[in-house]
Amino acid sequence: MTDIDDHSSMSEDELLAAEYVLGVLAGADRAAAERLLQRDPKFAAMVAAWEQRLTPWAREIADVSPPPQVWEAIAAALPAPPRAGLWESLAFWRGLALAGALAAACLGAFLYLGALNRERPLVATIEGGGSRAFVATIDAKRGTVAVVPAAFSADPTRVPELWLIPADGKPRPLGLLRADRPVFITIPPEFAAQTVRDAVLAVSLEPPGGSPTGAPTGPVIGTGKLTSL
């Protein structure tokens, strides 16, 4: 590398681009560089070239995992998603969840009055922190539980997992939930006898793939008692 005594090999604009990318400018100088960046494609290309040269230095900075509330804040700041098909539409499912108790009640009444089914459906509203996260409906005859997301925001690093907590207080894993659509889970036959009125459903946040231990390892974001309609 040869030493250079003047600035002849770089124009003033290019020096400004280099200083801007390095980050040494402040106040009016930085604002001037930003204005030029917006207006002048040649200057913008110089900035991009300096970003290409200097950014590999950031490799020396260690990764730090951000806390989950950062993603929640980002998701909340985005505009409402465009209308999608009914099945894909979270708004639809949220609406359904809010109307869920009523709808299930009607269905329950039908089933009850029609004597089509001796067992009345059990429902649980899974709430935590003042908001309703999921609504679960158990079909005891089929041995399934349908879980609809309500005010639950997805977390990119953890997944919601559903637990059954019967009278003995010991959580049993039922399966993973989704923030963007309902899931239908088959209740393991060995838990069927405990899936009764007054048992509690809970949702915790777990690593992708679910709790590695068979017991909740992450924070419990909501609980709800099973009640019959």
């Binding site: 900075i61 730090v64 995992s65 980002i74 985005l78 690093t157």
Partner: peptide, 25 residues
């Protein structure tokens, strides 16, 4: 195209690096 899941993918793959950069500065 308004794909939120795509932003979430970008976040999952890059947020630890960018958080490190922001903390450093």
């Amino acid at each position: 195209g308004g794909d939120r899941a795509a932003l979430q993918t970008v976040y999952r793959l890059t947020s630890a690096k960018l958080f490190g950069v922001a903390i450093r500065i």
